[in-house]
């Protein structure tokens, strides 16, 4: 039995006084991969952003626990230090800061001491190679002038370099061509182990190829409307969310 890595209890989240998430309960155990699906505009991004500590979203009530530790009140950097990572749907561009310098700074902040330079460079080179990234990207300014695909690969590169306990991936596959999705999936496979957890927002199954999905959640109306196994994905991708029927009720263990 795995212990619970992420536990969300009765989470209510608002933005500009409008309730977006209305009572989320969710547990991700270590070694588990959960998928979050749901129609556009139901608050999937809000949920992962709130877990990461995005100040735009107000937590009205409820709790977020990581490894049993309450992180609800923590700022984003403290959550990152506690082991949370978010792959952004739209990664930010930071002019003047190279990808390599940024990663070194981030790693230094997370590990509370600067990484050993040679070891770091070697690891970076290997991980970039594994993700089919041109080594010159290390010297380029973070995400500036990167294509959509390169930005997403860079997010996965960060995931692999920073090795968080819990990875939240917000539509990392959106806008990617087939090859890029495959590369991203390869990165996720390389990351996944028995101790960490993954929470992936996606609209299609391709990114999950070759990955064992433990639980699928469907978000609707600000709540987890359905929770099921891997089979839910093909159902939804084939027939749409309508197949699950309208209604709010919580259908545990569908």
């Amino acid at each position: 039995m795995s212990h619970s890595l992420l536990e969300i209890k009765d989470l209510i989240v608002s933005v500009e006084d409008k309730i977006i998430l209305n009572g989320i309960n969710l547990t991700i155990g270590s070694g588990e991969l959960h998928v979050l699906m749901g129609p556009n505009g139901t608050g999937k991004s809000t949920l992962v952003s709130a877990i990461m500590g995005d100040p735009r979203f107000q937590i009205e009530s409820g709790q977020i626990l990581l490894d049993g530790k309450d992180i609800t009140e923590m700022k984003a950097d403290e959550r990152a230090k506690a082991g949370v990572f978010l792959s952004f749907q739209v990664p930010e561009e930071i002019p003047g800061v190279t990808l390599e310098d940024f990663l070194r700074t981030a790693k230094g902040s997370l590990e509370k001491r600067p990484p050993k330079i040679l070891q770091f460079k070697k690891e970076l080179k290997e991980q970039m190679k594994a993700l089919d990234m041109d080594p010159s990207y290390a010297e380029r300014y973070l995400n500036v002038g990167f294509s959509g695909g390169e930005k997403k690969k860079t997010e996965i590169l960060q995931l692999l370099m920073l090795q968080p306990k819990l990875a939240l991936l917000d539509e990392t596959d959106s806008g990617l061509d087939v090859d890029a999705v495959r590369t991203v999936t390869k990165g996720i496979r390389a990351f996944k182990n028995r101790k960490n957890g993954l929470f992936i927002i996606t609209h299609n199954a391709r990114i999950l190829e070759g990955l064992d999905v433990d639980v699928v959640h469907v978000l609707e109306g600000g709540k987890i409307a359905y929770t099921g196994g891997q089979e839910l994905i093909s159902k939804i991708t084939q027939d749409g969310f309508g197949v699950l029927g309208k209604g709010v009720g919580l259908h545990e263990g569908l």
Binding site: M52, G53, D54, K75, D77, A80, F88, L110, Y141
Partner: peptide
């Protein structure tokens, strides 16, 4: 951009300084 950098473990001050440095 600040939130993005903070999500990678940088404190708010460090995030701002990194952006200004850039």
């Amino acid at each position: 951009a600040i939130f993005y950098l903070m999500s990678r473990g940088l404190s708010e001050d460090d995030a701002r300084a990194l952006i200004v440095g850039g």
